[in-house]
Design a protein around this nucleic acid. Sequence first.
DNA 1: CGGTTTCTTGATTGGGATCAATAGGAGTGG
DNA 2: CCACTCCTATTGATCCCAATCAAGAAACCG
Lengths: 203, 203
Amino acid sequence: MQSRRRVRGGKALFSAGDAFTSLYAVDGGFFKTHVLDADGREHVTGFHMGGELLGLEGIGSGQYNVTAIALEDSLVGVVPYPLIEQRSREIPDLQHELHVALSRQIARGQEVLMVLGSMRAEERLAAFLLNLSSRFGQRGYSRSELPLRMTRRELGSYLGLTLETVSRLFSRFRGQGVVEVRHKHVRLLDVARLKAIVNAASG
Amino acid sequence: MQSRRRVRGGKALFSAGDAFTSLYAVDGGFFKTHVLDADGREHVTGFHMGGELLGLEGIGSGQYNVTAIALEDSLVGVVPYPLIEQRSREIPDLQHELHVALSRQIARGQEVLMVLGSMRAEERLAAFLLNLSSRFGQRGYSRSELPLRMTRRELGSYLGLTLETVSRLFSRFRGQGVVEVRHKHVRLLDVARLKAIVNAASG
DNA sequence: CGGTTTCTTGATTGGGATCAATAGGAGTGG
DNA sequence: CCACTCCTATTGATCCCAATCAAGAAACCG
């Protein structure tokens, strides 16, 4: 039902403004999505790994409204949207799966919204690390060995922080024995402590 | 195809954790949606008026994961979800409309995410007022006379600010001749200026 | 290698949170 | 109607977290 497409690290899978044609199922690799604001500055809206769907927000406007960039060589399944609509009329299970995927994306957005709206810098990074750990775990990878594919700047953009703040937080966590950080590889040493940091989101 | 339900101001249409059964189309009135964090503190995730769908994020998890509260006496259309799935298999236009609604909700979330992740307090409130104005306008109401149904605290919670900051910003805008503020009624006096404030989102 | 991007760390600034006090409405019951 | 209370809003004073400005160090890449 679907063809495949390779995307080299650093290359775009689709760009904001492109006509919406297909959904993409990430098979392997790692993507970021971003938008450009009025001043041409980049704002990262999400990071995406195997098992996740890209392009869902294009249905409503007829064009992609984020740009998806592969952060390493990646593989995606290409599913033409008209085909999905047709098949999901014939196969109720598929229809429901699509609705679930769309709905979960909405719920995920609301979670990020809470992180940005109510957490302090330290809490945001801790929440991000736990979220990434959980997603790696769900896909059968280690929950504690996290290869970061994004730069400090990209991570900061996603979390509403500057790259310097992200760097300082990694150093602080390292000093507290919570994580080990080498370049772009992070090892979680004290998950309970990270959870405590997130839950300390009280004023 | 759908029944109707009245909701008195202050009452919940549905609560986080309730079993997901139906989508709700706001016919008249005004709603807020919120979640409670680990400490039981409320975080507003959105404000909703006529023409908007509530409950979409419940499809994925089988239960509503926000609480919807009417901020004034309101009227909604109740659409049982199984009925929607069935009908949308028979009526491609309805199917597409549902996908568009879901997709737009995702896109809206991404916009809010950008507001919270990259704008300063003043820019956030200006963006909110312009957004509210546009939504009132689309529904045939005045674009400049905005009856706020939410408290300063609720608005602050939505924008990631404290109620004091929201209050101060209203005072500042009033001092600049940008708006007129009386209690919970706002009149936009200088829309161009508001747009300039939002676009000044450069560092 | 040299050049470029990325990361770390330090010094300083500033915007919004917090703490605090007062005023303004709205609702209730006398 | 007024007195009382509760909730909401305004405004001021102070503090603190993260942004900004700045300088090296480390890693990546031709």
